[in-house]
């Protein structure tokens, strides 16, 4: 029952999100009226094109390829980044050493990684995955590191006073605290994963939505370019709002309790 109440409220809150999206659509329509269909197809034309390409087998295959690559990249980046970040958070020396490393890796533009990945992996899906991992890993790493480093030592002392061992303290104190640091990192990573995958595919011409985008561009098929862009954005939105946000809401229900207007479970 509580679950349905929560699900209902979550879906209802989508109205606010829809309003924001419709504002973008309005601006888009305005720009379309000004520049004309050849430069910028209207939202409606684009949606029609989306409806046309969605059932086509080539699109399903391309979207599947892109999805698998970005999910693999996401899983690897989040897994490795979180784990190493959390471990580094326990050691001041590792923290000091890794901070500049993270800054350097974040400072290298993803496009440069794509060039390197192309040289190392050739034109295969591997270069897209590697680019996603390298571009997204530092964010998860930083999240894990900050989460562990800022854990509440007062709570730690409290748990030790009850004789809790290292593992129990990690599980009951550090992990819940860590999660609040990891979610922003994960949502950013999820968004980055889609974008970087498409970019890498486009540049390395390795199929997927990026490959289709390159073809559509070569044919000057502007509605199709727009339709593909809309599809990618929709995928990114879906990952974030259908997967990550509900998960976060479920895990962090206690935060809601502290809100001043007191919307309770």
């Amino acid at each position: 029952m509580a679950f349905f109440g929560w699900a209902g409220r979550y879906l209802w809150s989508a109205w606010a999100g829809a309003c924001g999206l419709l504002c973008i659509a309005a601006a888009w329509q305005g720009a379309h009226e000004f520049y004309g269909s050849f430069i910028l197809p209207s939202p409606l034309e684009t949606l029609r094109e989306v409806a046309v390409i969605l059932p086509e087998p080539w699109f399903v295959r391309a979207a599947g390829e892109t999805a698998i690559r970005s999910l693999t990249g996401f899983a690897l980046a989040v897994g490795i980044g979180t784990l190493t970040g959390a471990v580094a958070g326990y050691s001041f020396a590792a923290m000091r050493l890794m901070r500049p490393v993270v800054t350097v890796i974040l400072g290298v533009p993803p496009i440069a990684w794509i060039v390197l990945a192309l040289i190392w992996f050739g034109s295969s899906g591997g270069s897209a995955v590697m680019t996603v991992v390298v571009a997204a890993l530092p964010i998860s790493f930083a999240g894990g590191l900050e989460g562990v480093a800022t854990r509440d030592r007062a709570l730690d002392a409290m748990a030790r006073s009850f004789g809790a061992g290292v593992w129990l303290r990690f599980r009951t104190l550090t992990v819940p605290h860590l999660i609040s640091y990891l979610f922003p990192a994960w949502t950013t990573t999820a968004g980055t994963a889609w974008k970087v995958t498409v970019m890498a595919e486009l540049l390395s011409n390795t199929g997927g939505i990026g490959g289709e985008l390159a073809t559509a561009r070569a044919l000057f098929d502007i509605p199709r370019v727009m339709a593909l862009i809309v599809a990618v954005v929709a995928f990114a939105l879906l990952t974030e709002y259908a997967l990550l946000h509900p998960l976060r809401d479920r895990l962090e229900r206690w935060r809601e309790a502290g809100l001043p207007w007191g919307v309770k479970r």
Partner: peptide, 16 residues
């Protein structure tokens, strides 16, 4: 067995 009551409550904010 001992227990400690600290100056601050030191409760876990994510637990009821």
């Amino acid at each position: 067995r001992h227990a400690v009551v600290f100056q601050e409550p030191r409760l876990l904010p994510w637990l009821a």
